[in-house]
């Protein structure tokens, strides 16, 4: 299947991509294309918007309307695209630093508005492009080149951040859980409102090496061994969930979407000023 998806949706002249050997981003990028393939939408209307960082190089390889913006600003640019033409399906590919640090303000405000964007956060717990500095999702006590004595920062849970900021579809997938992640991505894109999929990636080059997490296969196996489905997690105690990662849908509501609300204002003036 991958082969057909790559043939269909990728800019093959741009391959091989720049991701390091074993980087989970390549899998997640392919998963997005697989999810798009399942959608009954005009593929010409799909826009992929990214910021800066490893994650954000993904847009360059995917054959849609693609825009690689400035650091942290993908969601703000995507907001403009969606407001200007609500018929477009606007998808953001971003990273943990891009979405939750430099772009954190845009992330929470887009969620608050519940504008119809789908945000895939390729979350590898580190700044990879600049060489391994700790990010807002680097767990406390882990190491990065700018946390040589261990990270004293509290980390963000991207899914919780999205939920409590007002996102109306929130889920978490991983590199290992391919089929599940594709299904979550598909549902996120179909959801009318601000949807976020926290995509657990793996950075063997920096995060893995700095924190003795082994090689790429070890990091992916860790995802396999420690994932708990969100439904099952509801029946577990906090103690049982310690050290686990919750995957699957974590939040969903049907609050009215932003551009639909704005359209109602516009509709008041159809046929001239009343």
């Amino acid at each position: 299947m991958t082969h057909e998806i790559i043939e269909k949706y990728f800019r093959k002249d741009m391959m091989p991509h720049i991701f390091c050997p074993g980087c989970g981003h390549g899998v997640l990028m392919k998963d997005i294309a697989c999810a798009i393939d399942k959608l009954d939408v005009d593929k010409d209307k799909i826009c992929l918007v990214s910021g800066i960082g490893c994650s954000s190089r993904a847009t360059g390889y995917m054959d849609f309307n693609t825009i690689h913006t400035t650091h942290g600003r993908a969601i703000a640019v995507a907001t403009g695209i969606k407001m200007a033409n609500p018929e477009l399906m606007v998808i953001v590919i971003t990273g943990d630093g891009d979405a939750a640090a430099i772009g954190g303000n845009h992330f929470i405000h887009a969620a608050r508005r519940n504008i119809d964007l789908t945000v895939f956060v390729f979350n590898n717990n580190i700044y990879g492009m600049t060489g391994g500095q700790f990010s807002p999702t680097t767990p406390t006590d882990d190491y990065g080149t700018t946390a040589p004595y261990g990270n004293i920062d509290q980390d963000f849970d991207i899914a919780d951040l999205a939920k409590y900021s007002g996102a109306t579809f929130v889920a978490r997938g991983s590199v290992y859980h391919v089929d599940k992640t594709i299904r979550l991505m598909e549902r996120a894109m179909l959801h009318k409102g601000f949807s976020v999929v926290d995509c657990m990636s793996n950075c063997p080059t920096y995060y893995g090496r700095k924190n003795h997490k082994g090689k790429a296969p070890d990091m992916i196996r860790w995802q396999k061994d420690n994932a708990v489905d969100s439904k099952k997690a509801e029946t577990m105690t906090d103690e049982e969930l310690t050290g686990k990662i919750i995957i699957g849908e974590t939040h969903h509501d049907n609050r009215e979407e932003y551009t639909a609300k704005y359209q109602k204002i516009k509709d008041r003036f159809v046929g001239g000023i009343k």
């Binding site: 299947m1 991958t2 082969h3 790559i6 990728f10 391959m15 091989p16 991509h17 991701f19 050997p21 074993g22 980087c23 989970g24 981003h25 390549g26 899998v27 392919k30 590199v175 290992y176 391919v178 089929d179 790429a216 992916i220």
Partner: peptide, 16 residues
């Protein structure tokens, strides 16, 4: 089973 194809980050191996 397709695990290699699904998890290859570089699209270098696939079943046909």
């Amino acid at each position: 089973c397709g695990m290699c194809e699904k998890l290859c980050p570089d699209y270098a191996i696939y079943l046909n």
